[in-house]
Design a protein around this nucleic acid. Structure first.
Lengths: 192, 192
DNA sequence: GTCTATAAAAGGATAGAC
DNA sequence: GTCTATCCTTTTATAGAC
């Protein structure tokens, strides 16, 4: 029996609201109401609306990077690693599309200090994807002319779904989307 | 010698501000100031901040759809058409990334009526991309298992660059990005 | 069509009781 | 830690002169 603290309800309410309406359009009253507390109670747990965003954004970036690193860590051939990375990264964004939208679209709403902290995680994610491709090229298993550009393109494929994907009856599941993306990414870089 | 009307200055100022700070975070004072006029003057030309957004969003969607339709209209083999569509669509988003950001990220800020009108153009864009792939499959020139899913994936590739692309010294040009995307899209769907 | 001035409302954050 | 009440600022939009 898990206990849900007010703090956790607050973060969950913020994720809902920020993902649905955007950071600026979300009011502290809205967050408080979704969490079942008064507007004033919000400030017991967080200094400001932005600090709540920072918490969500930082944890979201960490989770995304973690998914990618685990996928790489499991090893295998370059093609296998690429497929697993794209599969798991896409699936995470589909299954966590609300946090994903906040991570991707509210970066500029962070304070300069918080933005800088999150930016290092973003660089790590891009670096990890480049490394996957470069290893494949070095081993002769992947054919990639522009490693940096292709890494960004594959990240776009996995990330952009937060813009439009909503889990729904009869639609594609996160797993189906992930499988499709793994196939498409492999075809983008496989040796002829 | 082209005359720039106050109306045009206003739209240009709105594009700048909305792309930079987002619709909700942009104040009418900010738009007015960028256009070199008083806050009150804004309302001579537009009923509300949202109607300005609608104007920008509608014209942006129309321009994007137009680019895609022209690329298709020039004809050629299925592969040639696909390459041209992806190339031109990506290049348009890179060259017009500010309008592109507004088009993609401020859809939910529109009123229900305006949102419905813009939504028809979005459906047209997705439909056009599916048709390009389906024609290639029918002619045996493209190998696509999931036409709908792959169409969305290729659109993601072309669109997501508005999230991160900024023209800068030494970086990739819009043309280089477009060429890369055309190559990657072709590989995603080319027959083995 | 543009200005100054301002109305009317909303929003981030805090005070102080419990 | 949570509440009610409220301060203070910002913001959209309008009134009315020129």
């Amino acid at each position: 029996m898990t206990t849900v603290t007010a703090r956790e309800r607050l973060v969950a309410a913020a994720v809902e609201a920020f993902a649905e309406k955007g950071f600026t359009a979300t009011t502290t009253r809205d967050i408080a109401s979704r969490a079942g507390m008064s507007p004033a109670a919000v400030y017991v747990h967080h200094d400001s609306k932005e600090s709540l965003l920072f918490h969500v954004s930082l944890e979201g970036h960490r989770a995304a990077l973690d998914v990618m690193r685990r996928a790489i860590g499991e090893g295998g051939s370059s093609v296998e690693v690429l497929r697993r990375v794209v599969h798991d990264f896409s699936r995470w964004h589909a299954a966590n599309s609300r946090v994903g939208r906040i991570v991707q679209y509210e970066f500029d709403a962070l304070t300069p200090e918080h933005r800088a902290e999150v930016a290092t995680l973003r660089r790590d994610i891009e670096h990890a994807m480049r490394d996957v491709l470069q290893r494949g090229v070095d081993e002769g298993e992947l054919a990639v002319v522009d490693v940096s550009g292709t890494a960004l393109a594959i990240l776009s494929l996995s990330i952009d779904l937060v813009r439009w994907y909503r889990p729904r009856e009869g639609g594609a599941s996160a797993e189906q989307l992930a499988a499709l993306h793994a196939d498409l990414a492999e075809r983008m870089v496989a040796v002829a």
